[in-house]
């Protein structure tokens, strides 16, 4: 009898323990979240303040009367939807281009043996070590020579050729290296070529990594104002991140509107993150693979 009871009791106590662990985890997570949510909360209360309350700076936390109209003002004062369209054009193409150029190069670095590979790898890392400011002017001059000023091309084309993608190439390489060799080798034996391996094995198996690359590229491009500032000469091409800077006047001024608009442009990134991180739960697991 007792032998029969034991597993059930064990199961019960384990279940109880798991519940306690879960409770503790919730408490820890909630406490940590508080710390991380704070900046957002600060943005929100700032977005709802009056200019007079802004002037008092950090003395005032909650606005006496929330100014929800700031959100409407922020959208109406700038050509919000034109900027939104411009941001979308650039972001979608840059994400697409970066994912393409980063995954192909990463495959070369991770899975193929070619002459000079390790040297090129160092060169790739080195491209990240040169502070961007010192190549800004020559880059601009180059774009003016090839007649790209006044177009969106300087913001888009480089992404398709690994411009600024060194970070992502390295990241993808790390993931590709983790994909079992046996998979590729058996595919080769079955007569697949490298393009097929890349498309049919590598890409599907590294979904979380690709999502990460796409997510980071999206965030980086969506929030970048400096690139558009320098390289987009036509104000009709301006993006949201750059357009928002208008609220940052010489002496403080309208940063309630700025926060309101910032929250609006932040929301899509948050929604995208929310869905992107789901792939980290359903993530691909190589269950059936034998070594």
């Amino acid at each position: 009898m007792s032998e029969l009871m034991l597993p059930k009791q064990k199961y019960r106590s384990r279940k109880k323990r798991a519940r306690i662990v879960r409770l503790i985890l919730h408490i820890v997570l909630l406490l940590c979240s508080l710390v991380f949510v704070f900046p957002f909360l600060w943005m929100l209360v700032t977005a709802l303040k009056t200019p007079a309350e802004l002037l008092r700076g950090i003395d005032v936390f909650f606005p006496a009367k929330p100014q929800w109209s700031n959100f409407i003002d922020a959208v109406q004062k700038i050509p919000f939807f034109m900027y939104l369209k411009n941001s979308l054009i650039i972001v979608v193409l840059v994400v697409f281009g970066t994912v393409m150029s980063a995954t192909t190069a990463a495959y070369a670095f991770a899975k193929l043996r070619w002459k000079g590979r390790d040297k090129w790898f160092i060169v790739m890392l080195a491209t990240m070590m040169l502070p961007i400011q010192v190549i800004l002017i020559p880059t601009y001059v180059m774009y003016s020579w090839i007649g790209w000023l006044g177009t969106r091309l300087p913001m888009i084309v480089p992404a398709f050729f690994g411009g600024g993608a060194a970070f992502y190439i390295f990241l993808m390489r790390q993931f590709f290296k983790g994909i079992p060799k046996e998979l590729t080798e058996s595919a080769i034996i079955d007569g697949a070529n490298h393009f097929q391996i890349f498309l049919k094995i590598m890409l599907p198996l590294s979904k979380p990594a690709i999502v990460t690359v796409a997510l980071f590229t999206f965030m980086g491009t969506w929030n970048d104002y400096f690139g558009p500032l320098i390289f987009l000469s036509n104000p009709d091409h301006w993006t949201l991140a750059l357009g928002l800077r208008a609220f940052q006047t010489q002496y403080g001024g309208q940063y309630n509107l700025m926060m309101a608009a910032s929250i609006l442009i932040m929301l899509p990134t948050l929604i995208i993150f929310f869905f992107a991180q789901k792939t980290f739960i359903e993530g691909i697991k190589f269950t059936g693979i034998k070594g």
Binding site: Y140, L229, S233, A246, Q248
Partner: peptide, 20 residues
């Protein structure tokens, strides 16, 4: 074309040095 005071200087510096 208007630029935020905080951005204007970068923009004009690059433009002057590249003769644009």
């Amino acid at each position: 074309t208007g630029f935020s005071f905080w951005d204007y200087w970068d923009k004009i510096a690059v433009a002057i040095s590249s003769r644009t």
